[in-house]
Design a protein around this nucleic acid. Structure first.
Lengths: 372, 372
DNA sequence: TTGTACGCGTTATCAA
DNA sequence: TTGATAACGCGTACAA
């Protein structure tokens, strides 16, 4: 165990004062320290393997260069962890480190978790959620704050909005629908998922609920409406987020009471599933019914979930959630704000909520509609 | 923005000395501070909302009560993030906070990432990997260290082994096989995955590779051998980890050259897939072939992956990877070690590598073998 | 029982 | 161009 080397030891080793070493280590030596002295100090530092103690630096400079990463379940979620990757890389690039607090959906613990991190003198917070949710109230902190994958609904609290970076689920839904329409599909069903249900733990700040299902459906309906499809709202069925939900939904739509596939004209030629998992259920249902994807049925998913969308048989056409980009952009905003003074208001000076595109990834689960 | 309150301000407010406040705040007031004074101090602290500055505490006490959580891709992985959950809860319970560094599989960055955290004065490290891997060399640090979901292969370096907590994949594989055998299956195929391929980035420490596939296969073969099944090694096919791998593997085993399902006696009555994802592919293949699960084919997976195993149609019988427990146990070891002196040797005093059971979760994808 | 003084490792100010 | 010294906020021996 190599002992920790203090700055003072480097000074002694090089035969100079601590301030000289400090100036050199912080790069403020230009015009202050003779090059020869500088080199001697650097040599000593290297030889002793000196590493500045950032705890002491934080105390002295009143800046920790650490930010709190607070998440609801993201560190344990199937795929949204990419937000962490983006945030971490961006932070590391700029010399920041991440203090993690994941409430694992016990929202009432978030307040004390954030308080603990504040006690640790984090310079600001990134608050990220597993799925797109509307928060009824901002996370409880007075430190600089940026949201990722969530946003504060309603009117700005106290006149100051909380900056947020979220995916553009609505446009994603529209893109998915337009892709199918362009392929000639007209009998299209969307398997959606329930929207906002108000939730909140005791002592936790309230959230309004998952918002992405309805948004995707809204974009879907808009596209169908513009294409002149009659009564597109009826094409939306509210099922759920998971494989079994997609399976059940597809069965209900594709099969008759006898459990056999309906005749081609009576069943949809394409299904837009609200998640890749749901789409996996659809593909499974199609297989059970003897329907070939994409010949008999086109399927579009949403999320571009790792190890799923690309690996299905056939590989799934889907809308990619820009998780990594959300992490990067949100962290950039936060650090920019910290650099230029740190007041939350300055961060907000940009758009309060910024939407990132969900690009459509076309794979093999979609094909032209059968010609009538 | 409520200004930060220092201990000195509390002292002034309560009309006492700083040391009195300090004694009370650290709980060392018994027999030192008059109860009345104590209450006055507590009242002032509450009123001013005083929070001890842990940066200053760390500097003074030379302990940060922070540990570095270093991961290869875990924060961004489909399911292994449960390790983080377990580690975080255990740490929080004991007043520790987590500094996150995720290399996102860029192993050459781990050394400098850990160095940065060491600079931040973390008291120790938890090193966790996404999948069970054998490391050729321990992560580069002299601080107390515990591994989760990975272990250092070969002889202990420098005479001191690195403590590790890993899943017992071998016993899991055995349990899966025994479950199928108990159901009367004899024609069982395992769809395994390739094992250790030596990897390493420039400057990164080498790892030997993923070890769980071969271990699961080894347990599987052992069970079959004990049951008297002939040539069980031939029952293992090396495919891959993902849905498409399982799909292809199942097709190869269940279907003939014409793409139709083989007659019952010529195909396996049960398939053990190396992961739940692979098992999903198997189920999909069975559906395409018109085979019913579990009537015509029993399927067992491995991992108990969230939002997958339980949500498949039918819900999947599988071996649960004890991710959360690994995080908890590994963190407990680390913190115990830190408490009792902190030398790595003391942590090792327990077993160097501890294997956690992978309990079999029986759901609906397995049933008795068809009677001959 | 309370208060004083010093140290933790660093940076910033100011004098030499 | 350098070096001594005072903070940063807290913990703790030791003196009062």
């Amino acid at each position: 165990m190599t002992r920790r080397v203090r700055l003072a030891e480097v000074a002694a080793h090089a035969g100079v004062s601590v301030s000289a070493v400090s100036l050199v280590m912080t790069g403020k030596d230009a015009g202050n320290i003779a090059p020869a002295t500088r080199d001697r100090i650097l040599a000593s530092a290297r030889e002793l393997d000196y590493r500045p103690n950032s705890v002491a630096q934080s105390l002295r400079k009143q800046r920790s260069h650490a930010v709190g990463l607070v998440t609801d379940a993201i560190a344990t979620s199937p795929f949204a962890g990419r937000i962490i990757g983006g945030a971490m890389d961006t932070a590391a690039e700029r010399g920041y480190v991440l203090l993690l607090f994941d409430s694992q959906d016990r929202r009432e613990e978030e307040a004390e978790g954030m308080a603990e991190l504040a006690r640790r003198q984090v310079d600001g917070f990134l608050y990220a959620t597993m799925s797109l949710v509307e928060l009824a109230t901002p996370p409880p902190t007075t430190l600089p704050l940026v949201l990722a994958n969530c946003y504060v609904g309603g009117e700005p609290t106290g006149g100051v909005a909380v900056p947020a970076v979220i995916p553009d689920d609505l446009e994603g839904g529209r893109a998915a629908a337009e892709h199918l329409l362009a392929l000639g599909h007209r009998r299209i069903v969307m398997l959606s998922a329930p929207g906002a249900g108000r939730r909140s733990g005791p002592g936790g700040f309230p959230i309004v609920g998952n918002a992405s299902g309805p948004l995707r459906a809204q974009g879907f309906v808009a596209a169908l409406t513009e294409a002149g499809v009659a009564r597109p709202e009826r094409a939306v069925r509210v099922c759920g987020w998971d494989i079994d939900d997609g399976y059940a939904g597809a069965m209900a739509v594709l099969a008759g009471a006898d459990g056999q596939a309906l005749p081609e004209r009576e069943r949809p030629s394409a299904i837009f599933a609200v998640t890749d998992r749901s789409a996996a259920g659809v593909i499974l249902a199609a297989a059970r019914l003897g329907l070939d994807v994409p010949r008999d049925l086109s399927v579009v998913g949403f999320d571009d979930q790792e190890a799923l969308a690309e690996r299905l048989s056939p590989p799934l056409t889907t809308c990619a959630l820009p998780h990594r980009a959300m992490g990067e952009v949100a962290m950039s905003w936060l650090l920019d704000g910290l650099a230029t003074g740190g007041s939350r208001r300055e961060i907000v000076a940009r758009d309060a909520v910024h939407r990132l595109a969900c690009p459509l990834i076309v794979r093999s689960s979609t094909a032209a509609a059968p010609t009538p």
